[in-house]
Simulated scan of single mutants.
Amino acid sequence: MSADTEEHGADAPGGDAGGANGAGGAPVSPRALARRRRAEALRRFAREYTRNRAGLVGLLALSAIVLLALFAPLLVDQAELTVTGAPGAAYEPPSAEFPLGTDNFGRSVLDLIIWGSRVSLTVGFLATVVSVVLGTLVGVTAGHFGASGGPAGRVVSSVLMRVTDWFLVLPTLVLAVALAAVLPRGTGTIIIAIGLTVWPATARLVRAQTLAVEARPFVERARALGGGHTHVMAWHVLPNVMPVVLAQTTLLVATSIIAESTLAFLGVGDPTTISWGGILEAARTAGAISSGIWWYMIPPGLAIAAVALSFTLCGRALESVINPRLREQR
C-alpha cells in the first residue's frame, strides 16, 4: 500500500471504520493500525491474485518444482549420479526402472533432472537478486536525483542512465559469456555474470516509477519537513516502487534460469555441478542428437521451459494485481 494512500485513508469521511478506535471505542495505537492496514492490503492482494487462473497454475507448478529441488537429497542417491556409481547401462530407453531412460554413463536422466533443479533454481534466484538489487539502486538513485537533485543531481542521474544505456546496447549473451570465460569457473561466476548483464531493464523500469512517485504530494511534504535524500529514497520512494520490483523479479528469475542453461550448454558453466543446461551440453557432446537419444535431450529442455513459463505466469499475474488497468483487461 502506498504512503499517500495510507495518509488519506484515515482522513476520508467514514473511510476507516475502526481507524482510530478499536472494538468498543478503545483507542488503537498507530502500530496496531498500521499492522491492520497491512493485513488488509495482503488480503486484498491474495483475493486479486487467486482470481487470475494462469497465475494460480504458475504458482502451483512453481511450488511443486521448488519442493522437488528441496527434497532432492531424499529422492536421489548421490552415489548413483557419479560415473562410477551409475546403476544402469548406457542409453537405456525409458522403462519402469528408469522412467526417463539413462545417459551415456548409465545414470538415470530423471535423477539428473531432479538434482539439476537445485543448481538451476539457485543460480536463477541468486542472479536475480544481484540484478534486482543493482537495478533498483541505480533506478531509484537516478530517478530521485533527476527529479529533485538540482543541477548536480541531474548530472548524476544522466551519468547513471548513460551507463545503463551502454549495458542495454551490449549483447547480453556475449557479455555473459565473456565474463564467465574471464573469471574463475564456478557457480558464483555464473551468478555474477548473469546478474551484471540483466539489470538495466530493471533500472529503467524503477527509474520511471520513481519519477512518478517523486511527483506525489507526500514526497513534497517530506522534503518540506526537512527530509534528506536518503530519508526520502528509503522511506517514501522505495516502498512505493517495491510492487513493481517484485513483479519484475519473478520475470527475471525465468530469464536468469534460461541464461544459466545457455551458458552451461555453451560449455562455460561449472563443470563440477549438475544443472539442466549442463545435462543438455553433455547430451550434445555425447552425440545424443545424431544418435536419436531423444530422452537425453527433451526432458531437461522441458524442465527449463516449465520453470520459465511458471515464473512468467506468476509475474504476469502480479502485474495484473498491481496495475488496475491490466485487471480490467483480463
Rank of each mutant, 00 (worst) to 15 (best):
L126G: 03
D111I: 05
R118T: 05
A96I: 14
T102A: 03
P93Y: 10
R118M: 01
P87N: 09
N104Q: 14
I113N: 07
V123M: 02
T84E: 13
F98Q: 14
V109A: 01
F105D: 06
A89C: 02
D111L: 04
N104P: 00
A79V: 11
G106T: 01
V83Q: 10
S108F: 02
S120M: 02
G116H: 00
G88Y: 15
D111Q: 00
A86Y: 11
G88K: 07
P99V: 08
D103S: 10
G124N: 02
L121A: 01
D111T: 02
A90R: 13
S95R: 12
G101T: 08
I114F: 00
T102K: 08
L121W: 02
G88A: 12
T122S: 13
V83L: 10
R118D: 00
L126C: 13
S95A: 15
R118V: 03
E80V: 13
V119N: 03
V109Y: 03
F125L: 15
G88C: 05
A86R: 07
T84V: 14
V123N: 05
P87H: 14
F98W: 15
P99T: 12
T122R: 13
S95Q: 12
Y91N: 15
L110S: 08
T84N: 11
L81S: 07
G106E: 09
P94K: 10
W115N: 11
